[in-house]
């Protein structure tokens, strides 16, 4: 699978571009303290509402309190991407656990878990998020967990479908004939074979978690000022949309770039890892 998948991935131009964008964003967030020209919370009332490129000290301009926009974008990226990745890990762990239990054990447990999934899917995620966010004090971790725990349902369905198909295969019967316990079969035999769809779902989930963080931060339930996130930068910019539009455009562009990057990466991985395309098996 390995060599062929990479060959197919490389042919996918958009996916390569997406992967590159994602890598750049991650690097920018990781090295923010070294790259950022200013302290993102430093106020400078003598330099409010500067346009981009107006002064070399503030490459992308300043906001209503004279804070450097580029620095805030970089630090905000740290927050947004951290939330995105922690939420994705939560989503994948929960979704994979529920999906594998439902798929492998079947019967009553399957019915119970899948009806629970249906119930969760009945509510639009944003409302679910806002209800929970109203009761949970917003910290980085709590926001990530809340996003993760309201978006695992699709993953559990994907994993369950994959397990249902995999568990009928001969090598699972062979593993049982060699004395493997159910836990071992689920973790050692089934899970690694379902890795491709889980990986694809994971990349797409980072994108949607970044978007979710922006929603709830924009609505004021997410990351709280003065800590910058792309979402609350948008909230700030709202009052000046007609006079200083770049304050909204810049974080908006960062979100768009991230979401598109992860989505293209996910699409590319899906095509590259699609088992029907695995010629070399």
């Amino acid at each position: 699978m390995r060599g062929g998948a990479w060959r197919r991935f490389r042919r996918h131009r958009l996916a390569l571009a997406g992967g590159l964008v994602v890598a750049l964003l991650l690097a920018a967030a990781l090295f923010a303290p070294w790259v950022a020209p200013q302290d993102p919370t430093l106020l400078d009332t003598s330099a409010r509402f500067l346009a981009p490129f107006a002064r070399p000290a503030f490459p992308l301009g300043t906001d209503e309190l004279g804070r450097d926009t580029l620095s805030r974008l970089l630090y905000g990226g740290r927050v947004s991407l951290t939330v995105g990745i922690v939420a994705m890990v939560t989503t994948v762990l929960t979704g994979a656990l529920i999906g594998i239990l439902a798929g492998y054990l079947g019967g009553f447990i399957d019915t119970l878990l899948m009806r629970f999934v249906d119930t969760m899917l009945c509510f639009p995620q944003v409302f679910l998020l806002l209800v929970v966010a109203a009761f949970v004090p917003p910290t980085l971790l709590s926001i990530s967990l809340v996003i993760g725990l309201t978006s695992w349902m699709e993953v559990s369905r994907i994993v369950r479908a994959e397990i249902l198909q995999l568990k009928e295969q001969d090598f699972i019967a062979a593993a049982r004939a060699l004395g493997a316990s159910p836990a071992r079969i689920m973790l050692r035999e089934l899970l690694p074979n379902a890795a491709a769809p889980i990986l694809v779902a994971a990349t797409l989930k980072v994108a949607s978690a970044v978007l979710m963080e922006s929603y709830i931060s924009y609505l004021g339930y997410g990351v709280q000022p003065p800590l910058a996130s792309w979402g609350n930068m948008l909230t700030n910019a709202q009052g000046y949309l007609d006079t200083v539009p770049w304050l909204a455009i810049l974080p908006g562009a960062a979100i768009t770039l991230t979401v598109m990057g992860f989505n293209f990466l996910g699409d590319g991985l899906r095509d590259a890892l699609d088992p029907r395309l695995r010629m070399d098996r």
């Binding site: 001969d170 062979a174 004939a177 493997a180 074979n193």
Partner: peptide, 26 residues
């Protein structure tokens, strides 16, 4: 549990389809 401890140890099995009886990712 006791039966699982015997499978692959005291009694073992070879299946018909060698192409699909091995775990493809191990």
């Amino acid at each position: 549990g006791a039966m699982a401890a015997l499978r692959g140890h005291r009694l073992s099995m070879v299946f018909q389809e060698p192409m699909t009886s091995l775990n493809p990712v191990m």
